[in-house]
Design a protein around this nucleic acid. Structure first.
Length: 208
DNA sequence: GGACCGATGTTCT
DNA sequence: GAACATCGGTCCG
């Protein structure tokens, strides 16, 4: 194991307000154990979803077969299938009974880059910058839906400290309702963030 | 870099 | 029957 930070965060880390967790997940490490091979990356982009006052949230209209994991206890994976071919992974937040989660939109690859490249059909770029791309790179699919984060499959480790001024905020991507909520968070000036080139110039300052 | 489009199948109305 | 928390290609500039 390359990192001292591999140890899973305690479950109570996730039973806090969803917006708070979406921000505090930036800089944390996402780990995936594939038959003993460890893949990892630093979380650089997240989005918050909450059943209350958020029409974009899958749980907004109550519990269904698809979204029921969002209502379970915090610190689980919520993986859903979308657009006929893609998976997206979330981490369930808040107390049991509240439908809320944080979508992991991008990680900066650290360990297992060659394996992730294979999983991404031998691509060398854009390995994990996008919710469906990182699921493909780390082989995260419907089978892991509902799993508690633990060191056997998928978990979050301590990572590095990201100060408040390093965090960018925007509307969420790819939704039609709920655009007015600024619930997307990302590490400024990090090329592994989606739409990086569209939002930043070479020096990393925001284009206006 | 940006706009557009097709792929593809589950979930929800 | 429509919508979809996306992606990769093409065409344009």
């Amino acid at each position: 194991m390359k990192h001292k930070n591999y140890r899973p965060l305690p479950r109570n880390f996730f039973s806090k307000p969803t917006l708070e967790i979406a921000k505090s997940l930036l800089g944390k490490y996402l780990f995936r154990d594939l038959n003993g091979q460890i893949l990892s990356g630093m979380i650089v982009e997240t989005e918050a979803y909450h059943e209350k006052n958020d029409p974009a949230c899958h749980a907004h209209r109550g519990m269904t077969e698809r979204n029921k994991v969002m209502f379970q206890s915090a610190g689980r994976l919520y993986v859903y299938f979308t657009y006929g071919m893609h998976y997206c992974m979330n981490i369930v937040t808040e107390d049991k009974g509240i439908g809320a989660a944080v979508l992991i939109r991008a990680v900066e690859p650290i360990d297992g880059i060659e394996i992730m490249s294979e999983n991404r059909k031998h691509r060398n770029h854009n390995l994990c910058n996008g919710p469906a791309r990182l699921c493909q790179a780390m082989k995260i699919d419907k089978n892991l839906n509902g799993m508690i984060l633990d060191c056997d499959t998928v978990w979050i480790g301590k990572g590095i400290k990201i100060s408040e001024e390093m965090i960018g905020v925007s509307e969420r991507i790819g939704i039609s309702a709920g655009k007015e909520l600024l619930w997307r968070f990302f590490i400024k000036n990090n090329p592994a963030v989606t739409r990086y080139k569209a939002r930043f110039n070479i020096s990393g300052s925001l284009e206006t």
